[in-house]
């Protein structure tokens, strides 16, 4: 038996916002420690890794580890039945090939129960090494989102360069070229507004910009996000959800011929 209740059910809605444009179906790995997911986009250029710790849930019960496959388009439809302030309970019986989602209003005056079929999905997990990155930049997620949106109307690729002076996003297209630099800034009162640059070695990598725009759909999960870069390695873009878990995106760089 698997059962888990989230007081802030809309967390699942927010997570789905970041997932559904990248992958259409995925296996959720249920274990006593929590719920995780790893899935690649169809072109195997980007990978999403989700982790929700068991203690992020109000009641968490997972009697045995199990993978449940879900069509994320269908899951998004089901989630429309949930109000933004509703609690969300997920239930999956080990002997059944479906999942039950229960949405309850905080005042307990509305109760919705939806059953959704599960599916068998062949998925391969990739081993992601614990990298020591050359550069880790933390910045407000709204700022990152704005930058990649703005640049995507100018060009298709983005060159990300980190030096001790800050992080620079550059693109070029028919319109012209654009460079946006964010310098380290920790003068603001709120830590979530800070930009910090943790640099081992300066690094420059080029990526397909549209994936960054997709990753930025997770902006509502966290005020801060981080970009971790190493020479000739996929970039890691992370949105941490406090001590509840995280969503991490990996994107393979463009390689010079």
């Amino acid at each position: 038996m698997f059962e888990a209740k989230l007081i802030q059910g809309n967390l699942i809605k927010k997570i789905m916002e970041g997932l559904k444009d990248l992958v259409t179906e995925a296996n959720f790995d249920l274990s006593p420690g929590g719920v995780s997911l790893q899935a690649m986009d169809s072109s195997h250029v980007a990978l999403v890794a989700l982790m929700l710790r068991g203690d992020a849930f109000e009641n968490y019960r997972c009697d045995r580890p199990r993978s449940i496959g879900m069509n994320l388009v269908n899951l998004s439809k089901v989630l429309k039945c949930a109000g933004n302030d509703d609690t969300m309970t997920l239930k999956a019986d080990d002997t059944q090939n479906n999942i039950t989602l229960v949405f309850e209003s905080q005042a307990e005056d509305k109760y919705a129960e939806v059953q959704m079929e599960l599916m068998d999905i062949d998925s391969e997990h990739l081993g992601i090494p614990d990298n020591t990155y050359d550069a880790i930049v933390k910045m407000p997620s709204a700022q990152f989102s704005q930058i990649v949106k703005d640049l995507s109307s100018i060009g298709d690729t983005v060159t990300v360069s980190v030096t001790k002076d800050g992080i620079t996003f550059s693109t070029s297209g028919d319109v012209g070229t654009a460079h946006i630099t964010c310098k380290q800034n920790t003068s603001m009162e709120k830590e979530a507004d800070h930009t910090t640059v943790n640099l081992e070695h300066p690094v420059t990598l080029t990526f397909a910009l549209r994936y960054f725009v997709t990753f930025a759909k997770s902006t509502s999960l966290s005020h801060q996000m981080s970009i971790s870069l190493s020479k000739e390695l996929p970039v890691m873009v992370e949105y941490a959800m406090g001590d509840m878990g995280h969503i991490r995106f990996y994107l393979a760089p463009k390689i010079d011929d």
Partner: peptide, 14 residues
Amino acid sequence: RSTQGRLESFFGPV
């Protein structure tokens, strides 16, 4: 010219 890398070129199977 540059080509798009694939994740399998960087991360191995589990």
